[in-house]
Amino acid sequence: MKKTILLTSVLLFSVSTNAQIFEAIKSSVKDQLKKPTTTTTKTNSTTPANSSSPVNLGSLTSTQISSGLKEALNLGVNEGVKKLGVTDGFLKNEAVKILMPEKLKKIDTTLRTLGMGSLADQGVKLLNRAAEDAVVEAAPIFTKAITSMTITDAKNILLGSDNAATSYLQGKTQSQLFNAFQPKVKASLGKVGADKVWTNLISKYNTLTGQAVSTDLNEYVTNETINGVFKMVAEKESGIRNNSVMRTTSLLQKVFGAQDGK
């Protein structure tokens, strides 16, 4: 009898305990369902690559930079004119040599076919002689253009390409340089006899072929001479930018030294 009572008590306790556990689990589940669902989104954080820090121009002002750029340009003009304004300064320098005008290349071909190549060579030689004679007048014309030029973006030009200042000068002054320099070239073409030789060349070609070829040699040689000077200026600018030995003044050292780390 006692065993029966004991067994019954154990069973009742077990049922009661299980019921309590069940109620606790049920209550816990309800609480979880009432809570708002949160979603954890995994984000990939990308660390930007270290970009090179901008060149520190220190205390340099735009006025100082502009003055330094102009000084470099003037050096390029003066040295370039000295190199070009001598016999063979254009003719023997392949970078600036003035070739047969595009419109007249068929004259060159025809003359050489007819065994008159020396006449064509003489024509090209005299174009270069005219440029060599006229270019000595270029320095003051270029200097005036450089002095009067306002550089509106000096810092970016300083930190630009090896010929950034030269390109800026050419873009700002090409037309005024042409107008000022053209009379000098015209006089030089007459002085070296290029105008007469070319008039004769074109006349002979037109007679032989029945064509009517013509070109403005003054305009052509003026443009080619100016472009030759710009090439020399660009060469000097590149040297100053990349070789500290060529920075021969304190201003050039200060201004172009600041761009060394670009």
Score class of each variant (00 low, 15 high):
V124N: 14
S51C: 14
M232H: 02
K30D: 13
I65W: 11
K30V: 13
T40D: 13
M116A: 07
N179V: 11
A134W: 00
T63H: 04
K92D: 10
N128P: 08
T41R: 12
D108E: 13
G261Y: 09
Q211N: 09
T222S: 03
K35L: 15
V233T: 05
V55L: 07
D121V: 02
A194G: 10
D88S: 03
N243L: 04
S66M: 06
S59Q: 08
E94S: 12
D31K: 15
Q253K: 13
F90C: 01
Q64L: 05
T147R: 08
T166A: 10
T43Y: 10
V229Y: 01
N74P: 04
L75M: 10
K155P: 11
N227C: 03
A138F: 05
S66D: 10
I98R: 01
G123H: 07
S188D: 01
N179R: 14
D162E: 14
M116T: 00
D260A: 12
Q122Y: 04
K172Q: 15
S214C: 05
V29R: 15
L208C: 03
K204M: 13
G117R: 06
E137K: 15
L217P: 01
E237T: 12
E137L: 11
K186T: 09
P101W: 06
S118K: 14
E219I: 07
V55M: 05
I226N: 00
D133E: 08
Q170C: 06
K34R: 15
G85L: 01
K82C: 08
T110S: 13
V185P: 00
K196N: 06
W198K: 03
V245S: 15
Q259I: 13
K30S: 13
L84H: 01
T43W: 05
Q259K: 12
L11Q: 06
T110G: 07
N206T: 08
A212H: 09
T199P: 00
V192K: 03
G80K: 02
T41I: 11
E102C: 04
Q174G: 04
L127Y: 02
K92W: 07
L33S: 08
V185G: 01
I226W: 00
E237Q: 15
K35H: 11
F181L: 02
G228W: 00
V15F: 15
L111H: 03
T47M: 12
M100R: 04
A139K: 05
Y168H: 08
G85H: 02
V15G: 14
T110W: 09
Q20V: 14
A187H: 02
I226D: 01
T4Q: 14
D133Q: 11
V185M: 03
L201I: 11
V185R: 00
A72E: 10
S62E: 13
K103L: 11
N179S: 14
M116W: 06
L208G: 03
A72P: 10
G257T: 10
G228D: 00
N44P: 09
D108M: 06
L11V: 12
L158P: 11
I21R: 12
S238R: 15
A95I: 08
A212T: 06
N156I: 08
T8E: 11
S161R: 13
L114F: 15
S66H: 07
V29I: 15
A24L: 12
Q170L: 05
T109D: 14
K97V: 08
